[in-house]
Design a binder for these strands. Structure first.
Length: 234
DNA sequence: GCGACAG
DNA sequence: ATCTTGTCGC
């Protein structure tokens, strides 16, 4: 594994981190996908209790069947604390390793956290999408910024997530009669792309199958029940 | 100044 | 994020 060019995120100051977000903001693209995606991936990270170790998993699925075709597991240490709005600086270094270890790249990557539904429009999905120059979607369980109207209780119902008068994502009922998840474009795709792809990853649970599988693998890695590395098919 | 605040 | 089994309710 080559040296990680983004390891400086681990020691950047919060004020410098915000400046970097302001600069990266100009690179955001919300242009629609040019072709129908066939492979989607989910990324998630599991943390240790007392230590600063983090365990990342990226799982690639065939969108049509939602069956896994590959996965990448990587452990790494962090030194940047969790600060609302600066999540990317904590998680991107290990995600970068996991991403570059993947031999099969998905058409779209779904991350745990927001895309442009962020005070500076630079949630982790947007930030990482710009770093790897690849389409991404943000899928979060809680709002970081913005608000929305009530939405119907049926799966598939949604309402615009508005921040400072601007649409930054949607509150999506991912499962009937369950609290919504918050989906926003990360980079290199549109709101419609984000919604339609997110819907296709939903099964009988609240969270997309992509993030559910990534979550499971990341936890297994943390508990020593899975090996670091790249594997195809499952 | 006060409250909110992804994972 | 993490500690954790069963249990209540649609």
């Amino acid at each position: 594994m080559p040296d990680n060019p983004l390891d400086f995120y681990k020691t950047i100051s919060p004020s410098e981190a915000k400046k970097l977000q302001q600069q990266l903001r100009e690179k955001i693209s919300l242009e629609a996908l040019s072709a129908a995606p066939k492979l989607v991936a989910g990324a998630d990270i599991s943390f240790d209790r007392g230590s600063d170790w983090m365990h990342a998993a990226i799982v690639v699925l065939e969108l049509a069947s939602l069956e896994p075709v590959a996965r990448s597991l990587v452990s790494d240490q962090t030194s940047f604390p969790y600060i609302p709005g600066l999540l990317a600086f904590r998680e991107i270094p290990v995600l970068w390793k996991a991403w570059h270890q993947l031999q099969i790249k998905p058409d779209v990557l779904i991350l745990d956290g927001h895309g442009i539904a962020h005070p500076r429009r630079m949630g982790i999905a947007t930030h990482f999408g710009i770093e790897i120059d690849h389409p991404t979607i943000g899928s979060a369980k809680n709002i970081l910024t913005g608000s929305h109207a009530e939405l119907a209780l049926e799966k598939g119902a949604y309402a615009a997530l508005i921040d400072k008068g601007e649409k930054v994502g949607i509150a999506l009922r991912s499962r009937t009669e369950v609290n919504p998840i918050y989906v926003s474009p990360g980079h290199k795709l549109s709101f419609d792309d984000a919604y339609s792809i997110a819907m296709k990853t939903l099964t009988k649970y609240k969270l997309p199958r992509t993030t559910r599988l990534a979550h499971q693998w990341a936890n297994q890695l943390r508990r020593g029940e899975a090996e670091e590395g790249y594997l195809e098919v499952q």
